[in-house]
Simulated assay, not measured.
Amino acid sequence: MTNWSPTVVPYGADQTVYLVFDSSGPSHSDCPEKGIERDDVETIISDLLTGQLKAPVRVMAFNTLEHWIEDVSNQVAEEIQTRCDIDGVPVPEHVEDFVASHTGAIQRLHLA
């Protein structure tokens, strides 16, 4: 992971903002990780499951009023795994590494 971190958490309304660090994109060699901002965790999970974010590395949350930052990658990965388990589908290939690395999940064999 790069040494990037938010330098200033803005003052204002009490809002939690989520940043997804994604390592895909056309300038992968110039900037191996890009931060993509989202307003809520549900949007992040949906974007990850539908392939709008192709190579997630980490998900960070920060609150603009309380001035905290937290790595929520484990919670997001566990929620993705749970939803896939409930639906009886495998974790999408583009997020398998993210889910496995943040849940400690062993790659599962999916029988046809």
Rank of each mutant, 00 (worst) to 15 (best):
M1E: 15
M1L: 10
T2Y: 06
N3Q: 09
S5Q: 07
S5W: 08
T7W: 06
T7Y: 05
T7L: 07
T7G: 07
V8E: 11
V9D: 12
V9W: 03
P10T: 02
Y11Q: 15
Y11A: 15
Y11T: 04
G12L: 01
A13M: 11
Q15K: 03
Q15Y: 02
T16K: 08
L19D: 08
V20M: 01
V20R: 09
F21P: 04
D22R: 04
D22F: 01
S23H: 07
S23T: 05
S24P: 04
G25V: 01
P26K: 14
P26F: 15
C31V: 12
P32V: 06
P32E: 00
G35P: 08
I36V: 12
I36Y: 07
E37Y: 03
E37M: 04
E37A: 09
R38C: 01
D39E: 00
D40G: 10
E42Q: 13
T43A: 07
T43S: 00
I44M: 06
I44T: 06
I45G: 02
S46M: 03
S46T: 06
D47R: 10
D47V: 01
D47S: 01
L49W: 01
T50D: 07
G51M: 01
L53T: 01
A55T: 01
V57G: 15
V57C: 04
R58F: 07
R58W: 07
V59A: 04
M60F: 02
M60T: 12
A61S: 15
N63Q: 03
N63I: 05
T64L: 07
E66G: 12
H67M: 05
H67S: 10
W68H: 01
I69Q: 11
I69S: 15
V72I: 11
S73R: 14
N74D: 14
Q75G: 13
Q75Y: 14
V76C: 10
A77Y: 06
I80S: 09
Q81A: 15
Q81E: 14
Q81M: 14
T82Y: 10
R83F: 08
C84D: 12
C84Q: 11
C84E: 08
D85A: 13
I86P: 11
D87I: 04
G88Y: 04
V89S: 14
V91M: 00
P92R: 02
P92A: 03
E93Q: 14
H94Y: 06
V95A: 07
V95G: 06
V95K: 00
E96H: 02
F98S: 05
F98H: 13
V99L: 11
A100C: 13
S101D: 03
H102G: 05
H102S: 09
T103K: 00
T103R: 04
G104F: 12
G104W: 03
A105N: 12
R108S: 13
L109I: 08
H110C: 00
H110V: 11
L111S: 15
A112H: 08
